[in-house]
Amino acid sequence: MTDKVTVTFAADTRNVALARTVAAAMAARADLPLDQLEDVRLAVDEAVTQVLLAAVPGADVTCTFLVDGYTLQATVAAPTQATEPPSTTTFSWTVLAALVDSAHSSVGDGVMTIGLTASRGLVDV
């Protein structure tokens, strides 16, 4: 079963909670156990915060959640003037990367993107 939800909101820290809530709902659709669900919630919080910090003032942040079976993919993107993706040697990135199975960041065409993937462990399925 494939399921896709996209939310777009103004680059304002007040909207981070919104992204967290949608992330948790989508993690539930991927049937992730509660601890992984909470990890995803925290990871999306970190990702949105990082993208927000680099976003052009007044820009929109777009979060896309894709559920495919027991896998959740989330991408967080916003227009930026940065030319480099967020450093992967910060504490924030260390936390982000530890919370999900994989995390990547990129900047291209003036848009910063952070992508996350969380999959339910095969052992449980």
Binding site: T21, A24, A28, D31, P33, L34, D35, L37
Partner: peptide, 24 residues
Amino acid sequence: RAPTVRELAAALEVSEADILDALD
């Protein structure tokens, strides 16, 4: 292992949305 939202909803006989609300 930790239960999923679906398993909690089934065990408590409430909707998955209710479980998510409670977690939220």
